[in-house]
Simulated scan of single mutants.
Amino acid sequence: EIMSFIRSYVVPEGFPDSVTPSYVPYMTWRALKHFFGGAMSVFTTRALLNSVGVSQSRATSGAVAINWILKDGAGRVGKMLFARQGKKFDYDLKQLRFSGDLMMELGAGIELATAAFPQLFLPLACMANVVKNVAAVTSTSTRTPIYKAYAKGENIGDVTAKGESVGNIADLLGTGMSILMSKRNPSLVASFAVLSCGYLLSSYQER
């Protein structure tokens, strides 16, 4: 009963007959990618919070909030402008998806740089959020056609839902692992480099 309960959240109904044979390798690498992505987010968020002055109490709560809102606003504008290129997303989906993951890593790297240059928090954070939101548009736009290629019959909704569930579970596991790691105060750059390599390798194998 426990296994049946777990399967109801992570695999499409009728699995494995309801999907193509290449679905399992794809989802395995996708889960690993989300695991490393979740782990990296802990370090990049910590860098952002430190650079904006939360830990040092050098900034008022109002100034912190304004900087954070401006950062998020810049990302949304970038996402909206890039969405105009949507017609091009229908060609070479997997290559485009990998390019989006490369951009996601670039954005995370820029976020990490705010720890070294806290005085440049706002421009760096805005730039990072624009890059990451452009990557998010690419990921969202290519997700359904890729899942459709693995679905058999009229079960694309189920395949998509279970695929996103697996990604979320892996993301949470990666986040939890990274929180435990961060308590030991490891090198920020070294930790990010290892996790980033894992993320990009998983993304490449996912194609």
Rank of each mutant, 00 (worst) to 15 (best):
V64P: 15
Q56V: 06
T60P: 07
F43R: 06
A47R: 11
G73K: 03
H34W: 15
V42A: 03
S57M: 14
R58E: 14
L32I: 06
A63H: 06
L32P: 01
N50L: 07
A63F: 02
S57E: 15
R46M: 13
F35H: 04
R46A: 13
R46I: 10
S55N: 03
S61A: 01
V54Y: 03
L70K: 03
R46V: 11
V54C: 04
L48Q: 04
S57Q: 15
A59H: 02
G75K: 05
A74G: 14
V52L: 10
V54A: 01
Q56F: 00
G73N: 06
N67S: 04
N50P: 14
G38C: 09
G75S: 05
T44W: 04
T44I: 02
A59F: 01
G73E: 00
G37T: 07
Q56C: 06
L70R: 02
G62Q: 06
I69E: 06
N67K: 02
K71N: 09
A63S: 11
F35Q: 08
G73P: 07
I69Q: 10
S57D: 15
V52E: 05
L48T: 05
L32E: 02
G53M: 02
F36G: 08
F35M: 08
H34D: 15
R58A: 11
S57V: 00
S61V: 04
G53L: 01
V42W: 03
L32T: 07
R58P: 14
S55V: 02
L32A: 09
I66R: 04
L49T: 14
D72C: 11
T44E: 09
A47T: 12
V42Q: 05
D72V: 12
N50S: 13
A47L: 11
N50Q: 14
T44G: 05
S51I: 06
M40K: 00
G38I: 13
V52Y: 08
A59R: 09
G37K: 03
V52N: 04
L32C: 00
R58N: 15
L48A: 12
N50M: 09
N67E: 10
F36C: 04
I66E: 10
S41Q: 10
F43S: 10
S57N: 15
T45N: 11
S61M: 04
R58F: 06
K33Y: 12
G37I: 13
A59W: 06
D72N: 12
T45W: 14
G53C: 08
D72G: 13
F43A: 07
G75P: 11
S51G: 00
T44V: 09
I66F: 00
R58Q: 14
A65C: 09
A59Q: 09
A39N: 09
K71D: 07
A65V: 05
I69T: 13
F43M: 08
